[in-house]
Design a binder for these strands. Structure first.
Lengths: 187, 187
DNA sequence: GACAGCATGTAAGGGGTTACATGATTCA
DNA sequence: TGAATCATGTAACCCCTTACATGCTGTC
């Protein structure tokens, strides 16, 4: 099997999760996979074409009256095999996630303490907002009338997001406190 | 001031943190910033040239006998101003970090449970290994004879890394347990 | 009639990695 | 003498984002 990039598998996976058009896929990613994956249209449409060319997906053009024309993709057996192969393949090493806050903090000796504290406050606010959206999405999934068969795995990914965010928030709190104590001690 | 990309500021910042050549910068990033930033030579050398062209850094070519020729960069006043401006600029929104494990988990309905559990075990092992390297680096910084004036900020970034990693590890443990319980209940 | 949402696509460019190419010094 | 480390750089390529271009349908 050819080595494909992860975006290909993300799209292939979504074809098994109730998405059938490029537009569907984009919507799904922007809502449910938002906290650990994102893809732009500039990747989706060319990739769908490519998957079709390689026989991993079938297309049918829908022209239902009263609806905008759309292309419906379905995963083929070959596509399912490729997806499974990837799912079973070993993890690549952890990649370093670039973090602007840590980069700025790393050079904070050149800043006055207030600026650094503000940086951490802003980050904390952003993390708190993110945590809330996770909870909203979670509630949405739990309250669904006919839950998706994938729902339990989605909840696991949300749990991960929540826990990491909480760790970040409490780090902010403690680090702010540490810097504040010093500020007071100096005056 | 021109908007520059974050890589430029990372390099500018490192010029204030005891690094003076491209090689130095690379080494520093691979050891101390490793958990939240990385840059390749393919970025470093062209960027140093560019920073010099823009007057943010000075260069002197060193030809000490008995040593390989090297270029020593120092940050200029203009460079310092640009760095400070960036440090004080508001945070950009949180970017979604791509996470291969969560992507695979998201599609795990199509896998047998053992494969999913193995995925989580592998991830947990990787996180545990990473946690250990953080502790090693931390010990190295704390035991230094003449600590860098930046040391306390470095320790803060390490603390962040440790906490997030710990959150990930305990999520793995709990998620594995959850999946295992079900496996048993089915048999 | 205007705006929101549905729907598909392309082109330019930015950012980054990888592989390659080169060469000096140090130490076992 | 060979390997490790120090040291600098380039070119091809990949991935992805952004901005643009287009057009339909439903609703206020």
């Amino acid at each position: 099997m050819t080595r494909r990039n992860e975006t290909a598998y993300a799209i292939l996976g979504l074809l098994t999760a109730g998405c059938s058009s490029g537009y569907d896929i984009k919507r799904m990613i922007d809502t449910s996979l938002n906290h650990f994956w994102k893809i732009s249209y500039g990747q989706i449409y060319p990739m769908l074409t490519k998957l079709h060319e390689e026989g991993l997906a079938d297309v049918t053009e829908q022209h239902e009256p009263g609806k905008t024309a759309r292309k419906e993709y379905t995963i083929t057996e070959k596509g399912k095999a490729a997806l499974t192969e990837w799912l079973e393949s070993p993890l690549e090493g952890l990649s370093a996630e670039k973090n602007e806050v840590l980069l700025k903090l790393f050079f904070s000796r050149h800043q006055n303490r207030e600026t650094t504290i503000k940086l951490l406050h802003d980050y904390k606010d952003q993390l708190t907002a993110r945590h809330k959206t996770y909870e909203t999405i979670e509630a949405g999934i739990r309250n669904e009338a006919c839950p998706s068969p994938d729902a339990r795995y989605w909840l696991m990914t949300l749990d991960f997001g929540k826990r990491r965010t909480e760790a970040g928030i409490s780090w902010c709190t403690d680090t702010i406190e540490q810097l504040t104590r010093e500020e007071e001690a100096r005056s």
